[in-house]
Amino acid sequence: MGIVKEMHLVEDLHNVNSKPTRDGYGEALLILGETNPKVVVMDADLAKSTRTVWFREKFPEKFIDMGIAEQDMLATAGGLALGGMIPFCSTYGVFVAGRAWDQIRTTICYGEFNVKIGGMHGGISVGPDGATHQSLEEVPLMRVLPGMTVFSPTDAIEGRKVALFAAEHIGPTYIRYGREAVPIITTEETPFNPWKAEVYRTGDDVAIIAAGTLVYEGLLAAEELAKEGIEARVINCHTIKPMDIETIVNAAKECGAIVTAEEHSVIGGLGGAVAEVICQHYPVPMRIIGIEDRFGESGEPEELMKAFGMSAENIIKNVKEVLDMKE
């Protein structure tokens, strides 16, 4: 029981560096600018925020500023893909998954065009900008589309690995990034298999399946629970679609109870996706932690995370509830 060594996570969870996951996107694009001549980067007037500005400075000829026109950006990306390029469309989750959904659906997914979408500012931790900019709904909007792959990386390092992989993967891909600096818990050595949910901590009493920055909270929660003799398995489910059914079903079989945690609406996100798997393959008691059916609001990221239950404490509370249901 405990942290899985082969995952090469940081040594001490209580002494970690922090960085926004979106930095990983910007870093990956810089690498792709050197290594993949087909990659072009598009942005809709948020280049500084999406970190595509780093690419723009180095590869201005491969950067396409689309102005504040997300629908045009996504359908244009479809044409670029048809013409043989690999476009990375970059803006906030709300503006892309929401505003340009029909373009993503009909032009990109129905057409199976090889377009990559970097959706920033996922989650409540966007902070003071408030509900208009805090995207809590992208996961169901994207994962409902046939052919779409959906990632939610846990930290900046994984965020970079995901974007690098996206350039290799053929097919529409959505990557959900966050605005705030969040703990870096993986290392360069941490294995990244895009089609696998990784078990970061073993345990057989309950499984905490998390995505994004909630993986960190899940690990902290497991540490506390262990002190009370509850061994929680912690799984980083960075790939929400297609889901690694085997790892999820094994967790249900071996742990008998599941708590999911994500910085997203409780409707249709990671929790919904896990529930779809569990209820059909191996039903066990389950709890979904996320933003209850409501919009976010302004505040400092940290206070919002606490207020909205995006914390180890809330995970612990839910674990105890689900364990009561188990027996």
Partner: peptide, 17 residues
């Protein structure tokens, strides 16, 4: 309302290459 954008994308791709 999507075809002209798609066309632009193709035109850009041709130019890149």
């Amino acid at each position: 309302g999507q075809g002209l954008s798609i066309s632009n994308g193709i035109a850009m791709a041709m130019r890149f290459q």
